[in-house]
Design a protein around this nucleic acid. Structure first.
Lengths: 236, 236
DNA sequence: CGCTACGTTGAGTCCAGTCAAACGGCGTGG
DNA sequence: CCACGCCGTTTGACTGGACTCAACGTAGCG
């Protein structure tokens, strides 16, 4: 099984063999978590740092009236709570959307890692800053675009993020319409209509209840997608 | 003139006299920038790190059709581009909304600072992570709340952020309706109606074309404001 | 076989956008 | 000094995108 954490980080810094070896070691310990379970809950002061090895999870908050707001999608290679030690308590929760395999690493191991492997430390910084850039772009997306463009923009981003970790299979997104709706801040009913319209126009396709992208260039043009904010290395 | 950078950072770590002295030294060099000018533009690879000493500026992007999306408001004490060296080029711009005084610090001075003053370094980390938490809350705000609550929520946040740097005067926000509208992702016309409605209900007041808050507790209740995400120390 | 979760469709409502116009303050230049 | 233009604010009428409520379809599963 490939190490998607290493693949992701190598977009942020040129890792060497010793870095890869250490990362492989750290990913040995993992657990399987079913869909729709919390990895960390709001208010926790977690003991371990978690990284997604497989599946999709998300950062989310629940509002007083019960609505859920998804603020981040975490795919294989992403860290959940790298820096939470500095803030103390989690101000949001992290939960699985699909079944996930999640690596857990003790805080002391992380501290050693950052100290002994400066290239990895730099790549971790890069990853943190890219996460922030993604948040900013999501803000633009929600604030300024109509919901069909929003949906298309989100799909473009995920397509590129999967590409950036060298995902072996063709892009196929297994989220439910409710999960997509909570991410975009729209209702399930409206999400359904948006998806239907994008399908009608051939911008996306469904296979096995999963969303696929027949022509990424067309989808990017439709959603005015500019990949700069992902800070990926110039494509090889 | 008080050092708002030091005041802000002391919310994230207990600074000592030597830390304060060094921060005061670093803020010696500054320039005045008129309203509506860029401090850093998209695509730049800035040589200096900037901190706001006075006034309000913002992170923003311009969309292809000319609309502006404001993704962050920077008030005195906030750093603009702490970590941009790692990402290389700016994926957004930073510009003033009101006239500002902006300190500039060379990258090498920053590196020395982070190395020689571990308490400051830790506080900088704290500030970066709080910025991220604010972005996430803005995402919740835009996605899930109606525009009157959105506006109220934003005002509550700014009220607390000004309080957290020990702002000497009563809170009074000098942004135009267009600037607020671009921040919330609504139109100027609608921003005007929202402000008028909040005023009608006595939740906000205008004085000198500036927004003031007669009763912060009422405004917080109205907007379902939960201050946890700002990670401020328990109020003294 | 019936339950549950997810997806689909329709009708009506409402929040926010659009277009348009007018008002007030303020600085500038004739 | 006044006229003018600019900027930000205010108001009105209309439109439209997204929400609400409600029902039905469908596939998987105990």
């Amino acid at each position: 099984m490939r190490n998607f954490v290493a693949r992701k980080l190598s977009n942020g810094a040129a890792l060497q063999d010793s870095d890869h070896a250490r990362l492989d070691e750290l990913m040995r310990h993992w657990k399987a978590i079913p869909a729709k379970s919390d990895i960390i809950s709001q208010g926790d002061d977690p003991e371990y740092v978690h990284a997604i090895l497989d599946g999709i999870s998300c950062r989310y908050k629940i509002l007083p009236d019960g609505r859920r707001s998804i603020m981040d999608l975490l795919i294989p290679g992403d860290f959940c709570d790298m820096n939470i030690a500095i803030l103390g308590r989690m101000d949001h929760s992290i939960g699985t959307l699909t079944p996930c395999r999640v690596a857990y690493i003790s805080r002391s191991e992380i501290e050693e890692l950052l100290f002994d492997f400066p290239r990895i430390a730099r790549a971790m910084w890069w990853a943190t800053l890219v996460d922030e850039a993604i948040l900013r772009e999501w803000l633009v997306n929600m604030g300024q675009r109509r919901s069909d463009r929003q949906m298309a923009h989100l799909l473009c981003e995920l397509y590129l993020r999967y590409a950036a970790i060298g995902w072996p299979d063709e892009f196929a997104l297994a989220l439910t319409q409710e999960q997509l709706a909570d991410t975009l801040g729209i209702t399930v009913v409206h999400a359904q209509r948006v998806i239907a319209a994008l399908r009608q126009d051939g911008l996306i396709a469904l296979r096995d209840r999963q969303i696929t992208i027949p022509d990424i260039a067309r989808l990017m043009e439709f959603s005015e997608f500019n990949p700069d904010y992902l800070h990926l290395p110039p494509e090889s």
